[in-house]
């Protein structure tokens, strides 16, 4: 049993390293993206082996539902920007003069000049050999240093006993949720602020364009989405609920619901979902603001800032998690759409 598990671990680690290596060495961006999706899958299995089902859940929702779609759509957008005439049947358009005069050893430019290199946006030449060994030396040396530290460090019990000793005041029965929303609530508040900041950053870049696409005609896509959306929403709410006593919680639920939103925007043939900008703003900020407001209230009613009175801890955590789920899901969809709604500028 143990030998089999050890063999499993070794194969898994070798696979992870191999996939990461081929992904970063790829000259074809589409291949790199598919390898990265595979990397996310293997990583989720690795988190399972490290007894971290919460992290595996998050990785599954992110890796499968969000990052893959985000990267694929970004590639498509880049292709659209660099080859604006695609879609016209005929020879590929001449390379963008700017892209090819950016000069020197630039990978893109070489591709653009080479007619056989295919799409400018989706491939990039291998890196020139100059400086190869210094890069290997820097990263390899750092890895050896890290490994030496890991091998010599002795390990104590960590913070697990401390968390276990205080579970009864936390209001929930799951250690990670207790840490995230009670013991170290600061981290989670700042995490929500970070998600909000990323969303605001994407909005500050301007209006979004419709996703470049040739919509596939036929009933398959709308039918699949109609079946999948309700299941995804139920799963998201279930994960939110499960977070108080089992792996799950606000972020996993938010990621699943965000993936459902991404699925919904992908299913629309020519436009993107366009909710009322004011409602969207309220939704995106609700999680962080609600958390902050209840945290300030805790300063007066509870023991300290961002702590909860013992008897109210469970309902408060559930309220905060619901708000956080909503905001995370909306922000992820907004980041996927990639810009402000055109209605805001009107």
């Amino acid at each position: 049993m143990n030998a089999a598990l050890l063999a499993f671990d070794v194969v898994l680690l070798a696979g992870l390293l191999g996939v990461a290596w081929r992904c970063l060495a790829s000259t074809d961006l589409f291949r790199a993206v598919v390898l990265f999706i595979t990397f996310g899958l293997l990583l989720a299995i690795a988190w399972v082996r490290l007894e971290a089902p919460d992290i595996a859940l998050a990785e599954a929702a992110i890796g499968a539902g969000i990052t893959g779609a985000l990267l694929l759509v970004t590639l498509e957008r880049l292709k659209h920007i660099m080859n604006p005439h695609r879609g016209d049947a005929g020879p590929s358009p001449p390379p963008d003069p700017v892209a090819s005069d950016t000069g020197n050893a630039d990978a893109e430019a070489r591709d653009a000049r080479d007619p056989g290199a295919g799409n400018v946006a989706l491939s990039c030449a291998p890196t020139p050999a100059r400086g190869r060994w210094s890069a290997v030396a820097v990263s390899g040396g750092l890895a050896l240093l890290l490994m030496a530290t890991l091998a010599t460090q002795d390990h104590g019990p960590g913070l697990q006993p401390a968390v276990a000793a205080h579970m009864d005041v936390s209001g929930v029965d799951h250690g990670i949720t207790a840490v995230l929303l009670n013991f170290r609530a600061w981290d989670t508040l700042l995490e929500l602020a970070m998600v909000l900041l990323a969303g605001l950053g994407a909005w500050s870049l301007g209006r979004h364009d419709a996703l470049p696409a040739r919509p596939a005609p036929g009933p398959v896509l709308p039918g699949a989405v109609r079946l999948l959306l309700p299941v995804a929403i139920v799963t998201g709410v279930y994960l939110l609920w499960a977070g108080s006593h089992a792996p799950g919680g606000a972020f996993q639920a938010g990621a699943v619901l965000g993936a459902a939103g991404i699925l919904m925007s992908l299913a629309r043939p020519h436009s993107l979902p366009d909710p009322d900008p004011r409602l969207l703003r309220i939704g995106v900020t609700a999680g962080a603001l609600l958390f902050l407001a209840l945290g300030l209230w805790g300063l007066f009613a509870g023991p300290a800032l961002l702590t909860w009175p013992r008897n109210l801890a469970y309902p408060l955590i559930l309220i905060i998690e619901t708000g956080a789920t909503l905001s995370i899901a909306l922000t992820l969809v907004a980041l996927f759409v990639g810009g402000r709604s055109p209605r805001e500028d009107a």
Partner: peptide, 26 residues
């Protein structure tokens, strides 16, 4: 549940044969 999202993102852009001259690969 979510493996389908990447597939949908892909199908949306490559569901029909590509017009000539816009290869997606190396």
């Amino acid at each position: 549940l979510l493996a389908v999202v990447a597939a949908v993102a892909f199908v949306r852009q490559h569901g029909l044969p590509e017009p000539a001259g816009t290869p997606m690969h190396e």
